[in-house]
């Protein structure tokens, strides 16, 4: 049997809002490590990795590892049936082809049963060692930059140098360049921009995906953007001391 109880149910709603437009169907893996997910978008350009650790839940019981295939739009519909302040319990019996969502509030409770799906998916090994530039900045600022740039062009070039991180785009009406410099705010660390770099790196990415990633903004005040020497982008939002949601995006390369 698998059962988890999340007092701050709104957190799970925010997670679903962050990934449901990027990924259609996904396996939620339940194990001693936590409640996790790894899935690619239908075009296989982006990968999302989610982890919610057991100690973040009021109750977490996982008798044996199970994988629950869910349509994320349907899961989102069910989560929207609960109130924002509700406690959410998710339960699945061994061998069952359904999962139960229970919403509790001081006024009562509600149960929803959703059919599970068989989904073929591969688990991908993620090598973090090739990281050559890391930028941590306010998530709202990153969201604003992606939105502004997508009104000008379709592709963003992200360049990290000693000067800072530059986001550039070009389109029919002209070009746009936004530079963020390192800025440490001791009193409000969440408003800082921190750049760590072993070597300058520059790579370009489709803005459509970047804007999709920023739907995770309500989960965290800060976002961490990493570029590897192979020009792969990782965008990470931490989830209040219980885990993270990470988006990986493959670059566009000059042919």
């Amino acid at each position: 049997m698998f059962e988890l109880r999340l007092v701050q149910g709104s957190l799970l709603k925010k997670v679903l809002e962050a990934i449901k437009d990027l990924v259609n169907d996904a396996n939620f893996d339940c194990s001693a490590t936590g409640f996790s997910l790894q899935a690619m978008d239908p075009s296989h350009v982006a990968l999302v990795a989610l982890l919610l650790r057991p100690d973040g839940f009021e109750h977490y019981r996982c008798d044996r590892n199970i994988s629950m295939g869910m349509n994320l739009n349907n899961m989102s519909k069910i989560l929207k049936c609960g109130g924002n302040d509700d406690i959410i319990t998710i339960r699945a019996d061994d061998g069952s082809d359904t999962v139960t969502f229970m919403f509790e509030s001081p006024n009562g409770s509600a149960n929803f049963e959703m059919n599970l799906m068989d989904i073929d998916s591969e688990h991908h090994g993620i090598d973090e060692s090739k990281c050559c530039a890391v930028v941590r900045m306010p998530s709202s600022e990153f969201q604003r930059i992606c939105k502004v740039l997508s009104s000008i062009g379709d592709t963003v070039v992200i360049s990290v140098t000693n000067e800072g991180v530059q986001f550039s785009t070009r389109g029919d009406i002209g070009t746009a360049n936004i530079v963020c410099r390192q800025n440490i705010n001791v009193d409000k660390p969440e408003e800082s921009t921190v750049i760590e770099m072993s070597q300058p790196v520059s790579s370009q990415f489709p803005l459509r995906y970047m804007n999709s990633f920023t739907k995770a903004t309500p989960l965290s005040n800060t976002v961490t953007i990493s570029l590897t020497s192979e020009l792969l982008l990782a965008v990470e939002y931490t989830i209040a001391e219980m885990g993270y949601i990470r988006f990986y995006l493959a670059p566009k390369i000059e042919d």
């Binding site: 688990h123 991908h124 090994g125 592709t155 493959a250």
Partner: peptide, 14 residues
């Protein structure tokens, strides 16, 4: 012209 790489170019599946 730019070529969009695939995520599977970067990760090893099991």
């Amino acid at each position: 012209p730019c070529l969009q790489r695939k995520i599977s170019d970067y990760f090893s599946g099991d």
